[in-house]
Design a protein around this nucleic acid. Structure first.
Length: 574
RNA sequence: GCGCCUAUAGCUCAAUAGGAUAGAGCGUCAGCCUCCGGAGCUGAAGAUAUAGGUUCAACUCCUAUUAGGCGCUCCA
């Protein structure tokens, strides 16, 4: 179905190789067919002769000659040449080139889809920011990336589930709770002693405290506060729990987490991201998953006790040192619930588990990998993708971000300022493991600096032409018999671009590189603008007009299909 | 100090899983509106951090050097 000409060539080469060399054991998969950048090298080329020449005691060029000699005649292959060090170049017939337009009109919204991932279940976990504050711009890139990767995998036929892991059980959440208590006591004028330097101080803490105060008045007030400012944070937390009672502490904790999670969901919704599931860390404690996992590791003899803490022998699996599972005070570490969480992912039967993390977590990769493989036993594969930070700029001025100070730019602010489309597209134009600068002014600008406007404009232009068509009382119908009228260099270039779209979908998903797709969209837009500028589309000649309209309509299908994967709108008017 | 990642045009980024002459945009310079949307188009100048190595072929792989980011908690 996809790229039939390419597969024809591939098969032809395979047959030829079998004829040239007996019992060769050559797999068809190592035959690469590339689309030529320069048309003087033909339409497709293969490097197979150079790749295999030495293996079969040939010189590349002679080997190429032999291969060509044994290729069977085929109506879509016009000419075969040897060039350079041993490339085999194929010149294909025009008719085969136009078949991509036929395919697009046949498949429409499904053009580009494939079933590479048929019957395979994938879990994509992304963002998973701690519910200790609103999402900030640093989370934006991971959000756009994770959502797009999910869409790409779906386009490739995988069954995808999006998940957000909520760390609602650790020490940071206790600190959040105390932060709320602090502001709460300030609201009821009883603030002096209930304070600690390392607490969350963002505006939203006031909002939560105000909500608690509004709904519960002085229910959580602690009388006779002692000055504990010089205690450690752990001592401070247990002091607060004791004096307030654990049940009341948990009550406030839940209010705070729910409040923040709501805010996070609201922001993700603005970004057009919907999760299939929200996995609570606390559930691993409630249903004994954590206990089970630790017993299981003990049974496997992968733990030991040192300094009253329980350690995991992660260094036996490539980690640089062993890690603590249970602290001296018997609290669990982030790692231990994370292991339990990943075991749960495996239990749910996913063939592949993708984690999208901020690049600052790279030190964590090997220990979670080792734990994962202990339980997956080869039945499930873990892929950890690291997303580099984006520096935020406003023109030439760098926007500083600091979570604790509360001065960070939230993702919500960013989306409200530049729009969801520009935010997503911008984040996805760069390779994810590459540092990037995100210029707010650039993302807001309405000109070709801004790739998303450039692409949307190309689409709007196509729509505009069809509106014009109606105004001029002209008709359009798709006829495949007249596509050969598209013989201008620019037209053939666009057709070539259209024909590689299915491969872009495969590659960007395989390599987890959505930027291949955004770049493709920009390139296609560029060719459309250029073509539009040079040629009149609504010409008097009915056949030529229909052929040209079919060409740009094909491009419109691709803009629509790709924009859905990126998660942006394709407006008909701008 | 140890580890991971990165280094491409003046700036921001590409380069189809090692392929042919390293591509875009911004900026600079020179052009294009009796014409389907000038929110656009055409052209020029300009680059693989350094030194070795592997290969028919290296921006891509390996080694060293230099420069930057991140991580080296019984933190999450």
């Amino acid at each position: 179905m996809r790229n039939s000409v390419k597969n024809t060539i591939k098969d032809a080469i395979k047959k030829s190789l079998d004829k040239t060399i007996e019992n060769n054991n050559i797999s068809i998969d190592i035959i690469e067919i590339n689309i030529c950048k320069d048309k003087k090298f033909g339409d497709f080329s293969s490097n197979i002769a150079m790749k295999l020449a030495s293996k079969f005691n040939y010189k590349p060029k002679e080997f190429a000659k032999e291969i060509i000699k044994n290729i069977e005649k085929n109506e879509s292959i016009l000419k075969i040449e040897i060039a350079g060090p041993g490339f085999i170049n194929f010149f294909t017939s025009d008719i085969s080139k136009y078949s991509v337009i036929e395919n697009i009109f046949k498949e429409k919204e499904s053009f580009g889809k494939n079933n590479v991932g048929k019957d395979l279940k994938i879990l994509v976990e992304f963002v998973s920011a701690n519910p200790t504050g609103p999402l900030h711009v640093g989370h934006g890139r991971g959000a756009a990336f994770g959502d797009c990767i999910s869409n790409l995998l779906i386009e490739n036929g995988y069954e995808v589930s999006r998940e957000y892991y909520v760390n609602d059980a650790g020490k940071q959440i206790d600190i959040l709770t105390i932060s709320v208590l602090q502001r709460y006591h300030e609201l009821i004028n009883d603030s002096d002693k209930f304070s600690y330097d390392d607490l969350y101080k963002g505006e939203y803490i006031w909002d939560i405290a105000a909500e608690v105060h509004r709904n519960f008045k002085t229910k959580f007030q602690i009388k006779d506060l002692k000055d504990k400012k010089n205690d450690s944070i752990d001592e401070y937390i247990s002091y607060a729990k004791n004096i307030l009672t654990i049940s009341k502490f948990e009550e406030i904790k839940k209010i705070a987490v729910d409040f923040i999670l709501n805010d996070i969901k609201k922001t993700l919704n603005l970004a057009g991201i919907a999760y299939n599931s929200w996995f609570l860390e606390s559930s691993l404690l409630k249903n004994n998953s954590l206990k089970e996992i630790i017993e299981n590791l003990e049974k496997k003899n992968l733990t030991y006790t040192k300094d009253n803490a329980m350690w995991f022998k992660s260094s036996s699996f490539g980690d640089e040192k062993d890690r603590v599972l249970l602290k001296e005070n018997k609290d669990h570490t982030y790692l231990s619930t994370d292991i339990a969480y990943h075991r749960d992912k495996i239990k749910r039967g996913f063939h592949k588990v993708i984690n999208i993390w901020g690049a600052d977590h790279h030190g964590y990769v090997s220990r979670i990998n080792s734990a994962f493989n202990i339980f997956a036993k080869g039945k499930s594969e873990l892929v950890i993708l690291l997303v580099q930070f984006a520096n935020l700029y406003r023109g030439n001025e760098k926007v500083s971000m600091s979570t604790r100070s509360g001065e960070f730019v939230t993702l919500e602010q960013l989306i409200k300022e530049v729009g969801s489309d520009a935010t997503r597209f911008f984040y996805l134009t760069r390779k994810s493991d590459q540092h990037m600068d995100f210029d707010i002014e650039l993302a807001k600008s309405n000109n070709s600096n801004n790739p998303v406007y450039y692409v949307q404009y190309a689409h709007a232009r196509i729509c505009s032409i069809f509106r014009q068509l109606k105004e001029k009382k002209m008709n359009y119908e798709y006829e495949k018999e007249i596509l050969h009228l598209l013989d201008k260099e620019e037209e053939l270039k666009i057709i070539k671009k259209l024909s590689i779209y299915p491969e872009i979908i495969i590659n960007s998903s395989k390599k987890y590189d959505p930027h291949l797709l955004t770049n493709y969209m920009v390139e296609l837009a560029q060719e459309i603008h250029s073509y539009y500028n040079k040629f009149q589309i609504l010409v008097d000649d009915k056949n030529l007009r229909n052929a040209r309209l079919s060409l740009i309509k094909s491009a419109k299908y691709i803009f629509n299909n790709s924009s859905k994967i990126i998660g942006i709108e394709m407006p008909e008017k701008m």
